[in-house]
Simulated scan of single mutants.
Amino acid sequence: MLSRRKRTITGKPVAKHVPKIKPSKARKIIRRFHLLIQKRRVICNKLRCDIVENDEEANAINIENFFRKNKTLQEDFNKGKKSRRPNPRLEELLVHVQSIEHSQQLCQILGYICGEIEEDGGLQNYQFASTVGQDSNRGGDSSKQLVKWCKELGVDKALGMNALELGSLSAKNHISVCGLFNPVVRIDLNSNDTVNIERQDFMKRPLPKDESQRFDLISCSLVLNFVPTPLQRGQMILRFKQFLKCNKKTYLFLVIPLPCLTNSRYMTKDRFNEIMHALGYRKIRFKEAKKVAYWLYELEQSENTMCSSQNMNQFAKKAKLLDKPGMNNFSITFPNRQPSHQGIYTTTKPLFSR
């Protein structure tokens, strides 16, 4: 019988203490962190300071080296870094940083951003908040919905299916413990569990050499919306196909924040489905929750589903679908390519080949 004591008679905790924060605070931390790194990216591009996606250690070194070469701007950076928080004036400049061209102001805002990231624990604090968001006790594990759908479709462990999970935060979520997939290969740009989750950028993952290196299912939950640009999002979606097995049923599970689809000037649920259909995916399940949208797509293996130049070139540029105050600019675009002699959509790399 388990002890109800919180501590043993020697005063030691019965169970290891796991720090917790409220989901509302976790969401606030996540939103703020992504706002800061987005604005930092804009500023560094303006200042021509090298920035590396998802490598905070490298970015700290690059920014330090930048000011070592531009000592006249160091004072402005330090001033922003030491400012009290929140600073109403700098918060206002932060929001409108895209329209600012004055180097001294940009450096002050950059210092303000870097100071906040350091004070709040940076990437480590963000990862902890993200893990809280996936706590099964709070219903935050999106793969729970995936497993439910897979069981409805008759997926069984006897089928020997494997899966690739992008942006994995835990080796104990539903996709990992349900037993339907073996193995589950888990990757994340900034893995906080390098034993069970490989630290890897999906866009740099080596392409499969044969069928044994491909997957029956790819899970991409709340990753696509954090890819920096519309074209990079399109390139990520294109790359999924190269990692899915040929000549059998394969699946793609996607989770995207609802505002990216319901409050965007350039994207709606219908347009997103049009994109996926043009790429050869068939929607087999969809669920709209309070804050996110879930999709399960099946990749059609027919030759007729190959992407034509005409199909994909219509998504090469952003198309304004709605325009109201307070809307966001989430969108997905694809490289504009020319058709081959056979009329098949071609690229310099075999993005669509199966």
Rank of each mutant, 00 (worst) to 15 (best):
N192Q: 12
M276A: 12
F226D: 02
Y281C: 08
V147E: 06
V97I: 15
K148R: 09
V255R: 00
Q235G: 09
V132G: 12
R239W: 03
R85Y: 01
N173K: 05
A129P: 09
L35N: 04
E118T: 01
V147T: 03
C246Y: 14
A316R: 04
N137G: 15
K12W: 11
E288K: 07
E303Q: 13
F315C: 07
S219E: 06
E53N: 10
K172A: 12
P183G: 05
R7Y: 15
K22Q: 13
I30W: 01
T333G: 12
T305A: 14
I332R: 04
F243P: 09
E274N: 09
K82M: 00
I284Q: 05
N311I: 00
F67L: 10
Y251T: 04
S191Y: 10
P23C: 10
G179P: 10
R89Q: 09
K82S: 02
H174E: 15
N336C: 12
Q213E: 15
I109H: 04
K16V: 14
L159N: 04
D201M: 06
M276E: 08
E57H: 03
G280N: 10
F240Y: 13
D323H: 05
I332T: 04
K22D: 15
L123M: 06
R354G: 10
Q301I: 05
L217C: 06
H341D: 15
K241Y: 03
P228A: 14
V185I: 12
K79W: 01
L47C: 13
F253S: 10
A163W: 01
A278W: 00
R354Y: 15
Q338E: 14
S24W: 04
I63E: 13
Y112N: 02
Q134E: 12
M267D: 03
E91G: 00
I61S: 06
S302Q: 11
N162Y: 02
K46I: 12
G111M: 03
G111I: 02
H96N: 14
R7D: 09
V223Y: 01
Q235C: 15
L261V: 01
D50Y: 11
N137M: 13
S302V: 03
N70A: 10
Q74N: 08
C307Q: 11
L207M: 14
P13D: 10
D193V: 09
R89C: 01
E92Y: 04
L217S: 07
L254F: 00
K71H: 10
L224C: 05
T348Y: 11
K269I: 14
I332Y: 04
A60C: 05
E288F: 01
T10Y: 14
E303T: 11
Y345E: 14
Q301H: 10
G154C: 11
W149R: 02
K269M: 11
K209V: 06
R186W: 08
F334R: 05
L321K: 00
Q235A: 07
A278E: 05
I256Q: 00
D55L: 08
R199N: 08
R271I: 06
I43E: 14
P23F: 05
Q310T: 08
Q314I: 08
A278F: 03
E211G: 08
A171E: 13
N125Y: 02
R233T: 07
G111N: 01
